[in-house]
Amino acid sequence: MSRRGVLGATLTVAAMIAVVPLSLALERRAPPAEGGVGPAPVLLRASILRPLLLGFHPLAADLYWLRTIQYFGAHLQTDEQIPHLYGLVDLVTSLDPHFIDAYQIGGLFLAIGKRFPEAIAIYEKGIAANPQRWELPYDLGRLYFLDLKDEAQALRWWEVTDRLPGRPHYVPRFMARLYTKTGSLETAFELWNAMYEGSDNEWVRKTAKQEMQKILAQMKAQTAPKAGR
């Protein structure tokens, strides 16, 4: 091998060896992440962003959706502050107005974060953009019933659900229960159970299961004093 070749090979090997220690040294000197939850998301106006994406806006909606999940997950585990969540879900659903999962799960995220007016706004936006989908008025009815304890509004949205194609068989039963205004805890349990059985999504099923366990505990607590008497 020529002298130039030996030099080249030595440099290549040295560079290969140096890569990992250099990477580690840089990592130690990098500025710390803000509170462990990362920087605030960059929210652009969908009306400006959409044309600039040259028809690839559904793909951008997907990428923003992944960012939304990251944002929610990171803040749920730390400070539980989610001021940008509505903006993110709104952007995703403006880039792809038919992204039903984004309305459903985005609305659920907002409800978990106790941001009920924003959750309602997302569901209503979804209903306006997808008037033939039963899932969104159904979810909005559930939000009113479970979180806001507003049975009149819940009934109103389940009546809308009842008129839509493909709605689940249990919707009329919930409506009947609300009409008679009996068994709130049982109805709540049934609602979460319907969500648990009707969803293929592992996260949704897990959340529904946790809620059912909470309701079961409440039911036990209610019956225990009666039994003790």
Partner: peptide, 9 residues
Amino acid sequence: LSVGGEAKI
């Protein structure tokens, strides 16, 4: 990494 919308992605 996603919650929902897997097939769409």
